[in-house]
Design a protein around this nucleic acid. Structure first.
Lengths: 391, 391
DNA sequence: TTGAAAGCGCTAACAT
DNA sequence: ATGTTAGCGCTTTCAA
């Protein structure tokens, strides 16, 4: 509607006051005569004024936006779906149908011309990484927590993907330009160099999960060990004694700790040895690992699987082998991702409060940005057992 | 590292040239002596200069970011999971475990204090909407397409959720402030007022799916009818003659059109009557609809289900009733969302090229922003049959 | 309590 | 080809 955008000046004229006064009203600064305040408010209303963000940002040095970075590790996207073990890995989502399929064409819109715009550069490895990450149910929970926290504070997240060195530089550049006030980093690999880069640049950031190398940076994390313990105790309480575990990648802290917690609880209960098979957080790797376990221990009656995706694979394999879940073998997953519900039977699983964790990340970040908090801080969240049908 | 952020001035001094020259180099404007250019580049490198986005934005009136809006319809989030029928509806994702669960606590981080920051305001209806939307596998595909297109152009999406009137105003305000150059709107309801608001304000925007009320706005859409036809022909080719359909909500264009295409193809093949049962794009509604269908037509041997989530429910119900898929009843889904793969058996389904569609949206939007394209334009994408095991 | 004025860091005319 | 300069729209001293 409006052509040249309105400025403070316009509103000031309309209200018969100075720019400064209008600015004060808008920013809720005290020391404004209530009468004048109302006049100004009316003028703003009438004109439909919206303050220019860039101009404001230029002086306040705040953008009211933060970067939400999904970060990989190396130059290449890797084959392992899930990273630091804190998330559930992802279904491959988009299975590509035959390429060269359908294309854009006009359908007689309200006045549409129909030349197709360039359709985006698909198929780059970068996009493959992005596609994989975004297809992961874990991602939705991350976003949900962040948005839930930010929105009431009228801040908004900018989504960034950073799995190459170049992309990481793009992220730091973005922040140094003052395009965002800080970064929330969700790494998909233990060796992600981004947290250290951010720290080195002195940029406010908070990580999901403790960085592999000790880094003076704030983070939230899950008490993974505790999760393993929960699983062990539940299985034990169900009367299972032939226990085993399909673990996550053991080079990941989360993979190791989930197992450690499981083992420790069993040891306490008198079970010294626990057969394990390592998986890669994907459904297939879960099935494979289960097959190996079964080969060596045909008598087992309970399995702790380090994430839900693998647990799904485990359930499928067990069914194939003619073992019913939970009657013959009880299965406990980890994450409580959406597959926990779609899985047959629905999974008993160790829930990670992802939304609460990412909301907390945003909270921490804001404190760092505002200067309310200066020391790197870590918040540890407790997992929770969700009992469904698989154990 | 750096304290007061560097400015053009600093770099200019370092390079022994004027601000303008540095600016030219940075913006790749011609008319710069190659020698000087290199000197400037070196100075930039040496100082680690990053141009201030706000300052630039203030004069260029561009932000290099666009809003990606997930938009609902009414004041309330509704119970129907999926909206315009173009997406696959969503698993409820986060089933809330008992509240008052675990909370933050320090775990002895590199120097961490441990007061918990305020953990975000959960449980608002707004968040429920957000959680539902983000848990939808469709959302990941949307984001993936957008990011894939934007990133090579070093632009970034700001994520916004707008399901209440207030939230919608927040979106328009955001754009009018010049916080983003335009908006990509994905409505979850046919009656979403946001597109019209955007048009009224003269803000650049592109929709996913044609708005319910004719609106002079650009959009991308799927040839839903064509999808219905594909399903019909496949089922026919498989020799199925007792066909039926579990439809989407028939008040949604997509729901209606998918059915219309299915029916038309069958009519062409000589089948006048097709039993249908309406579903709500959720798994449960799919199962319910299938039960109804089976009650009235125990002899059917093929079903076209208007989305994958419902198709999953359909498959489960059929199995419960002792009918095997596809032997007894062939099932064709719609969307090719991630559940198509997790479903047992994996679904034969009509694939919607969501990533390509959203990338195209971004492309259109950029053209509108740049002024390269002024007329509202629509792009229609062709669905594609993905044959797996269910039909 | 209000207004005048000085920038914030950048781009883009306009001069040279 | 390069430098000078005038803003972009806002916040924020500083005076009044």
């Amino acid at each position: 509607m409006e052509r040249r955008s309105l400025t403070l000046e316009d509103v000031a004229r309309e209200a018969g006051v100075s720019r400064a006064t209008v600015s004060r009203v808008i920013n809720g600064v005290r020391n404004v005569d209530p009468a004048i305040r109302d006049v100004v408010r009316a003028a703003i209303e009438r004109t439909g004024y919206a303050p220019n963000r860039a101009a404001r940002s230029l002086v306040t040095r705040r953008t009211e936006t933060i970067a939400l970075v999904i970060s990989g590790a190396g130059e290449e996207s890797e084959s392992r779906t899930s990273g630091d073990g804190t998330n559930g890995g992802g279904p491959d989502g988009a299975n590509d149908g035959a390429p060269g399929g359908a294309d854009g064409a006009d359908d007689g819109a309200p006045g549409g011309a129909d030349e197709a715009p360039d359709g985006g550069d698909d198929d780059t490895p970068q996009n493959a990484f992005a596609a994989r990450v975004f297809a992961d149910p874990f991602f939705g929970r991350v976003v949900s927590g962040v948005v839930g926290f930010l929105r009431p504070r009228s801040m908004h997240p900018v989504l960034m993907v950073a799995e190459t060195e170049a992309a990481r530089r793009q992220v730091t550049a973005f922040l140094r330009q003052g395009s965002a006030d800080g970064a929330l980093v969700v790494s998909t690999h233990a060796a992600d160099p981004l947290p250290a880069m951010l720290v080195a640049e002195g940029l406010p950031a908070v990580c999901f999960a403790r960085p592999a190398q000790p880094t003076p940076i704030s983070y939230v994390d899950l008490a993974h060990r505790e999760g393993g313990r929960l699983a062990a105790e539940h299985l034990l309480a169900r009367g299972r004694r032939g226990l085993a575990s399909v673990t996550g990648p053991l080079d990941l802290p989360a993979g190791r700790e989930r197992l450690a917690g499981f083992r420790a609880a069993l040891e306490r209960a008198g079970t010294a040895h626990v057969p394990i098979a390592e998986g890669g957080f994907t459904r297939e790797s879960g099935a494979d690992a289960m097959a190996r376990l079964l080969a060596g221990h045909p008598d087992l009656d309970g399995v702790f699987v380090a994430n839900d995706l693998m647990a799904q694979g485990v359930c499928e394999l067990l069914r194939e082998r003619g073992r019913s879940v939970p009657q013959d073998v009880a299965v406990v997953g980890f994450d409580d991702s959406s597959v926990a519900l779609t899985c047959r039977p629905p999974l008993t699983t160790v829930r990670q409060p992802v939304e609460r964790m990412t909301a907390a990340m945003a909270g921490l970040l804001l404190e760092h940005v505002q200067g309310t908090r200066t020391e790197p801080t870590s918040l540890l969240f407790e997992p929770e057992l969700v009992v469904r049908d698989s154990a």
